[in-house]
Nucleic acid binder design. Structure first.
Length: 119
DNA sequence: AAGCTGACCTCGC
DNA sequence: GGCGAGGCCAGCT
């Protein structure tokens, strides 16, 4: 079992364009719901690595991590370029775009362990 | 080495 | 329904 970060990144890499997920959903999928916080920390380390960190928002669809990108606006711009719709208050339309690892990926153990062991 | 902090979430008051 | 506290992992002081 590799680090918590790497598990998060594997999930992150599977998020389809035009969809978003939440810190809590990722945290729960990789093992612990309460580690949602650390997920954000993992994102910070992933900025600039090519992973779609912009597809992770908080439970309300707010772009809380925007300020950690190259510029504070690229997060929204990337999402808009993927046809993600926003509410008037600037939050993502979660009903329309929400994607969860639990419903779209194989069971966490299989998915994570497979990739890790075969690596 | 111990303690604080952080892109969060949930529960209790 | 707003405010405060606890829980998780890793990095920094």
């Amino acid at each position: 079992m590799r680090s918590f970060y790497e598990r998060v990144w594997q999930v992150l890499a599977e998020i389809p364009a035009g969809r978003v997920t939440t810190y809590g959903d990722i945290a729960e999928y990789v093992g612990t719901r309460a580690a949602a916080r650390t997920v954000g920390w993992a994102m910070n380390a992933a900025v600039g690595s090519g992973l779609p960190c912009h597809r992770v928002v908080n439970r309300n669809g707010e772009l809380t991590g925007a300020r950690f990108f190259e510029t504070p606006t690229v997060m929204e711009e990337r999402l808009r370029s993927e046809d993600v719709r926003f509410h008037q208050d600037g939050s993502v339309d979660m009903d329309r775009h929400r994607w969860t690892p639990a419903e779209n990926l194989p069971p966490a153990r299989d998915f994570l362990d497979d990739n890790l062991e075969s690596a």
